[in-house]
Computed example of a mutant assay.
Amino acid sequence: MKKILITGATGFVGTNLKESLNENEIETLNIRYVPNQKIEIKADVVIHLAGKAHDLKKVSRANDYEEANFELTKQVFDAFLQSSASTFIFMSTVKAVADKVEGILVENIIPNPKTHYGITKRKAEEYILNTQIFEGKRFYILRPCMIHGPNNKGNLNLLYKVVNKGLPWPLAAFKNERSFLSINNLCFVINEIIKNEFIESGIYNLADDEFLSTNELVKIIASVSNKKNLSLAIPKGFINNIAKMGDLIKFPLNSETIQKLTENYRVSNQKIKNAIGIEKLPHSAKEGLERTIKSFIKQCNT
């Protein structure tokens, strides 16, 4: 049994992680950045989840991300170095590397983040990587892609609502491949890191084993929801023209929306699997997504 300190434990990831680590002694720390604050750590393992994620409404200031994702991480990591804790796990993101991916994203690609979210997460990564680590301590920078799981309220929930209402999916003409990450696979990896002290410190991408297209995702949602799959292959040129109009009149179907729904974003998880010593993660992308959709259905029926 280890004593584990989790920051940001009240969120989606933190809630699931606490449950998966329940054989250990769990301590949580709700914390925000305050200049010169002193953080005392009395634990074996520190899992730093606290931070600021994407702002879909685009009302946050750049400084909000700087403080939550960079300055706070510095404070927590410095406290870890001064403590007796042996393991530090930082939840970064693939967006610290790239907003668009040509080919498959691997760990040694030179980072080029574009958003305040990605830029500040990358700054935190650089601080950890460039700080001298004392003997007997190890660190892990985890870069998850889009995380899914029961009761997650992200973009999958929005897509589920479209299918559940019987609305047609108009972008079937676009072919893409995306990586997802089951919350169960995320918790599995963190458990393995904590238990296996021979896993080398460093950066690791986290993703399910399989790539899925948005069209396949729509099919999964329709199947689990017992709804008819109303996918329409409307010509790309027509969709792109509508998107350009949406840019001008603030219509929901705009160029940014189309890009997010139809882009390729494939992430390799081979490095972490090699480090753990496994060929496959325990949960397939399809299994995890089905569990996620079933939770949406349950929510709608309660």
Score class of each variant (00 low, 15 high):
L105K: 04
V106C: 03
V106I: 08
V106M: 02
E107H: 10
N108L: 05
I109K: 12
I110Q: 11
I110R: 08
P111W: 13
P111V: 11
N112P: 02
P113M: 09
K114P: 01
K114T: 11
T115G: 05
T115C: 09
H116W: 04
H116S: 06
H116I: 00
Y117K: 04
G118C: 06
I119M: 10
I119R: 09
T120D: 03
K121I: 04
R122G: 00
R122F: 05
R122S: 01
K123P: 00
A124L: 12
A124Y: 09
E125I: 01
E125V: 01
E126Y: 08
E126K: 14
Y127W: 13
I128H: 08
I128D: 07
L129R: 11
L129Q: 13
L129P: 07
L129G: 07
T131F: 06
T131N: 06
T131A: 06
Q132L: 11
I133R: 04
F134W: 08
F134N: 14
F134H: 12
F134G: 12
G136W: 08
G136L: 06
G136A: 08
K137T: 04
R138G: 06
F139T: 09
Y140G: 07
I141M: 09
I141A: 07
L142R: 15
L142F: 11
R143S: 03
R143I: 01
P144A: 12
P144I: 10
C145M: 00
C145H: 00
C145A: 01
M146A: 15
I147A: 09
H148W: 08
H148G: 10
H148T: 13
P150C: 03
N151S: 14
N152M: 02
N152C: 02
N152Y: 02
G154Q: 03
G154F: 02
L156T: 05
L156D: 04
L158W: 11
L159E: 05
K161V: 05
V162A: 03
V162S: 04
V162F: 01
V162Q: 05
V163T: 15
V163P: 09
V163W: 14
K165C: 00
K165Q: 00
G166P: 05
G166H: 05
L167D: 12
W169Y: 15
P170V: 04
P170I: 05
P170A: 03
L171N: 13
A172G: 15
A172C: 07
A172Q: 15
A173Q: 04
A173Y: 02
A173W: 02
K175P: 08
K175E: 15
N176H: 14
N176T: 10
R178I: 14
F180V: 14
L181Y: 13
S182V: 04
S182L: 06
S182N: 11
S182F: 05
S182Y: 06
I183Q: 01
N184I: 00
N184S: 05
N185F: 12
N185P: 12
C187V: 15
C187P: 14
C187T: 15
V189E: 00
N191S: 15
E192P: 01
E192R: 04
E192W: 00
I193L: 14
I194M: 03
N196Q: 06
N196L: 03
E197C: 11
E197W: 09
E197M: 11
F198L: 14
I199N: 07
I199H: 10
E200Q: 12
E200D: 09
S201D: 07
